[in-house]
């Protein structure tokens, strides 16, 4: 009891730098560097056809071989890092701002506004997310812009639910009542009393949403509905080179592995963070 509630000592913190955290940091750090500098270092342009040989094996053409059009897989992988991660970050930032702001508004508003917003959110969440995206894109078309906004809105429903719940939980705490009994404004209560206590779980949620965005966008690209060729995106690259698998080419495997390693890396960091945070919220977030 008393031992558990003590503040963690410095040695405790050191032991908490687990191997899985370090692996996660290394992977994510690596891909961040690739996204930033990869295109500058790439031997070819993403759309350059460097050989007339489709699915050339690794080593023969470039580092990782050629794709179905004879383009350099290695170069496209480097360009794809920027495209995929950039899009995912954009979507996450959008969905996060939308979800957090609306979630907080719902939490501190009266019954009617909260009820209305929550019901709309529930309705959106009643769709499996990919199905909703497909329906919207069939109606509005499959441009990149539409995909970004659609995925961001679908994603924001989860952020909305979490931030509303967090703010609600905190707004019934006694220290918020203390502030209310002082006559503090709603703005002050939200920004000074509630917000600081939601930062840790929201940070974890950001990581989770980021991986979700990567997976979602590359799945849509893979289905041919997201990023359009010849742009290099990891999802697009998997789709393009799927046939190559039959000829023993790993051109489809490389971008798929890139997505997988990146999301595993982010999730390792988030997982460490949630474990450190402890508590009920992280239990829920962990799933």
């Amino acid at each position: 009891m008393s031992a558990a509630s003590q503040a963690p000592s410095e040695t405790d913190l050191k032991t908490r730098f687990t191997p899985s955290l370090i692996i996660g940091l290394v992977i994510v750090g690596f891909w961040l560097l690739v996204a930033l500098f990869g295109p500058a270092l790439a031997p070819h342009l993403e759309s350059d056809i460097v050989t007339d040989m489709s699915y050339a094996p690794a080593g023969e053409v470039g580092l990782l071989g050629s794709d179905y059009l004879g383009r350099d897989v290695f170069s496209r992988l480097l360009y794809g890092a920027r495209m995929t991660m950039g899009l995912a970050l954009l979507v996450t930032l959008l969905s996060f701002s939308l979800g957090v702001i609306l979630g907080f508004i719902a939490a501190i508003s009266g019954r009617w506004i909260d009820g209305l917003m929550s019901r709309i959110n529930d309705a959106l969440m009643a769709f499996p997310s990919i199905i909703l995206a497909l329906i919207v894109m069939s109606a509005l078309g499959t441009s990149l812009m539409i995909m970004i906004v659609t995925v961001a809105i679908i994603d924001s429903t989860r952020v909305f639910r979490l931030s509303r719940a967090l703010a609600m939980d905190i707004s019934v705490m006694d220290f918020v009542d203390v502030a209310r009994s002082r006559g503090e404004s709603l703005w002050w209560i939200t920004v000074r009393e509630i917000l600081p206590n939601t930062l840790a779980p929201l940070a974890a949620e950001f990581g989770i949403r980021f991986t979700f965005a990567i997976l979602f966008i590359s799945a849509l690209s893979f289905l041919g509905l997201g990023v359009q060729p010849p742009a290099a995106d990891w999802g697009v690259m998997v789709k393009e080179n799927l046939q190559g698998l039959l000829f023993g080419s790993a051109a489809a495997l490389m971008p798929a592995a890139a997505v997988a390693s990146l999301t595993v890396g982010v999730n390792l960091i988030v997982d460490w963070f949630l474990r450190r945070m402890g508590g009920d919220v992280s239990q829920e977030l962990m799933n």
Partner: peptide
């Protein structure tokens, strides 16, 4: 409602709650 009371009224009536753990904002 507290928010509609005058500042001097708010000043003169203070409240202290049962659970010290949740009555203080842990971030302040």
């Amino acid at each position: 409602v507290a928010r509609r009371r005058t500042r001097s009224v708010l000043k003169n009536i203070q409240i202290v709650f049962q659970m010290p753990d949740v009555a203080i904002n842990p971030r302040h």
